[in-house]
Design a protein around this nucleic acid. Structure first.
Length: 340
DNA sequence: ACAATTTGACCACT
DNA sequence: AGTGGTCAAATTGT
């Protein structure tokens, strides 16, 4: 228990430092020395936190199932807690529902295990009627007032659901604490974008085009007009903007996998010049709770200029869940194809 | 006319 | 019974 408290303290400390750094980085008069010190502190804080987690895991686990959490510069392992069964395919439930219109079966509650969240911030003062463009075409199919939430939750499915059978869906929930932040929960994989190669390795490095555009959400515009590829390319051409924001890492509403570990070399891929995910542009910003990631407090997002619509925030991450492996204990994410 | 969104109703789950 | 997720008819936009 003491360790958990310390862990939380450390992570909170990291959060605070990161916030300070964010402020400093926006103040041109601050010295490089100050930045260096802050960055060192942040790294140190997170490393300490990770050590604590590792210690705890060593105590709780036998040697055989031991998984090391990475240092800040090493391999990223995402710990995910209690899970629905992993035996089912990511889309099995949805598939049954949509293409079997037997109403008894089709109305079955979606127990889709694969889902992940993003926290997106839009510029205050801009239209924020909904999420920004994330490179995919979504059609809204519902909206619901959620108990305890100030803002309704929007339900979206892939526009190509009927034509291509793409079963990806997302839910968009505006944050109560910070109305400029949208929490987007993606469920299922885009089968339509496998063909169109939305997260293509051929796009330019988004780090080269991160300067400018402010998010300009246009709730009435349509994101259904362009194929995802073209949209993303357009986004990259016209400039992207990175926003770093604080995540509520204590939010533990998502339980996608279970007590397993997602292991991936995110960090090293982030340094790779060839890495181009229009979705997250190399900066970790998705979270899988309850312990979102080793960077629990920070979410960075590439905010593309708004080409669309309805409610989609920014370029989204296409997450190739078919590259997960589950061996009964660990959930491994093979990201070589994803990041290459 | 067609496509997208809105919204009340329905259903499954807890 | 309460809640979240989805459906589908009605409405709105292009």
């Amino acid at each position: 228990m003491g360790d958990s408290k310390n862990l939380i303290d450390e992570l909170l400390h990291g959060l605070e430092l990161a916030r300070q750094l964010q402020i400093y980085l926006n103040v041109s008069s601050s010295s490089n020395e100050t930045r260096e010190i802050l960055i060192q502190k942040i790294i140190s804080t997170f490393e300490k936190a990770l050590e604590m987690v590792n210690r705890k895991r060593h105590v709780n686990m036998g040697e055989s199932s031991k998984q090391q959490y990475p240092s800040a510069s090493g391999t990223l392992a995402i710990r995910i807690s209690d899970s629905p069964p992993l035996s089912c395919s990511p889309r099995s439930e949805d598939s049954d529902r949509d293409f079997n219109r037997d109403h008894n079966a089709s109305r079955k509650r979606n127990t889709l295990p694969i889902r992940w969240t993003k926290h997106i911030r839009v510029e205050p003062g801009m239209a924020m009627e909904g999420p920004l463009d994330d490179g995919y075409s979504w059609r809204k199919y519902g909206q619901k007032d959620i108990l305890g939430a100030m803002h309704p939750r929007g339900y979206y499915r892939c526009t190509h659901r009927n034509v291509l059978g793409c079963l990806a869906t997302k839910q968009v929930q505006r944050s109560d604490e910070d109305p400029t932040i949208f929490e987007i929960t993606y469920r299922g994989n885009h089968t339509c974008t496998i063909a169109s190669n939305v997260v293509g390795p051929t796009l330019n490095n988004p780090f080269q085009t991160q300067e400018t555009n402010i998010v300009n959400t246009n709730p009435q515009s349509l994101d259904q007009q362009k194929p995802p590829n073209e949209q993303l390319l357009n986004n990259l051409r016209t400039g992207l903007r990175v926003q770093t924001e604080n995540l509520d890492f204590q939010n533990q509403s998502f339980v996608p996998f279970g007590n397993h570990v997602l292991e991936s070399s995110f960090a090293e891929n982030f340094n790779s010049p060839s890495y181009v995910s229009p979705a997250n542009s190399g900066i970790s910003h998705f979270s899988m709770s309850p312990t979102p990631s080793v960077f629990p407090n920070m979410a960075s997002e590439i905010i593309p200029p708004a080409t669309s619509a309805a409610n989609t925030p920014t370029a989204s991450m296409e997450f190739p869940f078919d590259q997960f492996e589950f061996d009964g204990q660990n959930f491994t994410f093979h990201n070589s194809r994803f990041f290459s």
